[in-house]
Write a protein that binds this DNA or RNA. Sequence first.
DNA 1: TATGAATGAGTGTTCATTCAT
DNA 2: TATGAATGAACACTCATTCAT
Lengths: 203, 203, 203, 203
Amino acid sequence: MSEEAPARRRQARGQRRMEQLTDAAAEVFAEAGYARATTNAIAARAGVSPGTLYQFFKNKEALAEALATRYREQLRAAHEKAFDVGYAQLPLPELIDRMAAPMIQVNLDNPGFKALFADAGMPERLAAPTRALHQAVVGKIEEVLAARAPSLPAAERRTTAVVATQIFGALLGTVVSAAEEEREIWIRELKRALQRYLEPVIA
Amino acid sequence: MSEEAPARRRQARGQRRMEQLTDAAAEVFAEAGYARATTNAIAARAGVSPGTLYQFFKNKEALAEALATRYREQLRAAHEKAFDVGYAQLPLPELIDRMAAPMIQVNLDNPGFKALFADAGMPERLAAPTRALHQAVVGKIEEVLAARAPSLPAAERRTTAVVATQIFGALLGTVVSAAEEEREIWIRELKRALQRYLEPVIA
Amino acid sequence: MSEEAPARRRQARGQRRMEQLTDAAAEVFAEAGYARATTNAIAARAGVSPGTLYQFFKNKEALAEALATRYREQLRAAHEKAFDVGYAQLPLPELIDRMAAPMIQVNLDNPGFKALFADAGMPERLAAPTRALHQAVVGKIEEVLAARAPSLPAAERRTTAVVATQIFGALLGTVVSAAEEEREIWIRELKRALQRYLEPVIA
Amino acid sequence: MSEEAPARRRQARGQRRMEQLTDAAAEVFAEAGYARATTNAIAARAGVSPGTLYQFFKNKEALAEALATRYREQLRAAHEKAFDVGYAQLPLPELIDRMAAPMIQVNLDNPGFKALFADAGMPERLAAPTRALHQAVVGKIEEVLAARAPSLPAAERRTTAVVATQIFGALLGTVVSAAEEEREIWIRELKRALQRYLEPVIA
DNA sequence: TATGAATGAGTGTTCATTCAT
DNA sequence: TATGAATGAACACTCATTCAT
């Protein structure tokens, strides 16, 4: 029809290729860790040749970065849902519920990502943005605390937010790596742990 | 003096070399992760040639294993101190105090080890015993719970022990990587978090 | 023309590469022996990089194995020609002629192979099949002896076959390493030696 | 007693060390071939440290050379016995007997040497003198032929001598590597083969 | 002399990346 | 765009040789 149709079709194909590749990378990285994963293995898993991989990604790091971006974007979207909440009014258990649920979902949708981005073998360039994201979560929790426990000194507020994030992160790992039939148990316990930790502060 | 003097001196030198090497390995592994660490870099850091490294360690894995063993042995000793406690009588805060302190100390003495042995790029042979150790901690906590919260159903007891261990591990990481002047704050918060989590169970 | 053309062309190139590499390996192995030959030297001789060598051969041993297989297959074909002979009827000189000719030809076509596969530095996995082949030759000669010298006791038959094979092998080495213009002389003498050794037995 | 006694004693000890080392080298070379044998293994087998080995031998090659020299000297002595024979008069079988016996004995006394010095992995410097020795044997046989078959043209005389030497060498290998209880059989067959080959020439 | 720890060049092999087709 | 053969810098590891003791 239009003369732009082939270009669009081409672009669509390119999009598909990139997804094939990032999906394959996600699998291979998850199985082997960043350092042990080979780009040839990723290309093979995606059903393309190594050359093709390098037409879409500058190098191995760029692949991981794409993965990280995809993960981070989903997380950011989850954050928005999680924190864009009239949290001032909610009772603590429900507050935690609403905050935790989308984050858990993202990690269930992206198994292995959490482990990957905690990997010691990861190049610093990739670890940094992940830490930034982590800090963003801490910041959000600080905001909640500021609203709900206004009398808490700033220093303690930060400490509390960091610890809550750490607890959340650690138990998130347990949830994600758990067998499906046990998952609910771990999710309930994750929430319970956060409640017990935050209750005396938020009251 | 004695004719055995040179042998003893040589052995002492060997001992020193091994320590130089494991120390260098600890540093390099901690900085780069297992997979990215190169044996030549470790040798260079220790101030010796690659050949010398291989006179003391069969291969890269053996180096990591030596490190793991050293770490595990210190941890095991810490466990003994931590759990060989008349815990039946102690109030919860002190119980947590006594359990946490030696474990924290070991990890402060061995910075980077915790991160290393969580590394996804680690050969399974080395990851497995570390997981076993983790399980042992869980088991110990279960024992404590059995003694102090006998009415808790077994399933919940296990869940609680696992979660307490995870919380401890996560916050231990924060403690170890914190600047020295902030460390006390994080240690206090670690204990507080555990207390709040366990209090409703132990009563 | 066809869409399969590039694939075919690629395969042809692969075939050529393998030949380049086995040829180079044959040269380098022959010059230096198995153990002193380096894979990098073989790659260089073939005009390719070390990585390319390893795209076609799993490791050094596989290269030698390919060579061994090529050699053995030619030898086996030669055996068939050599021994699939109505030998019951032929006079001894002609019998020897027919048996020796194809074996000699194979070794002239593959200079250095005989030496290589007698190399003490060779991995056992490769030496074993070569010994098996040697035994096969002995067995064939025993068959001939059984047919042509039925009164010879079995033990002596075997001894005679072994010795004939050894004589043949030794003089084959002389033939192969001789200057071309002298080769005929050595071939004639090889046959003469076998005749003189076997004549009193076969009568 | 005398002031030279300690020097002499020292020298005697040195002599013993050299023998320990060459003996050890003979074993290790025979087991592993020249290239795969390690000087450290040789030192260990001799019960000394690597440093000591290098106090007596400049390098690995020098060790092999010492071995070669020892072997060659024994062979030379054997030659003298073998060929310093009033061969003009002896009947062929006895002539062969006398020539073969000492050579066989040397090789039985030095198992593995023959194989070692035929090793393709051997440095040229060591292979050359061995070839020279081989040529000497050929020369001696030519002399015998000149005396016993004066009508044989020089060219044929040489050819015959070379082939006789090759046959002898090949079957010598069989003799040396045979189990002890079979050795006599192979020695007899060796002589028989030589007889049959030389009989028509020497008449 | 004797030791054995130390050396370091060199080996087989891998894998991120490029490029001719 | 896609291919996959080709590259070559690195890596883990070995071993002939040296040297402080």
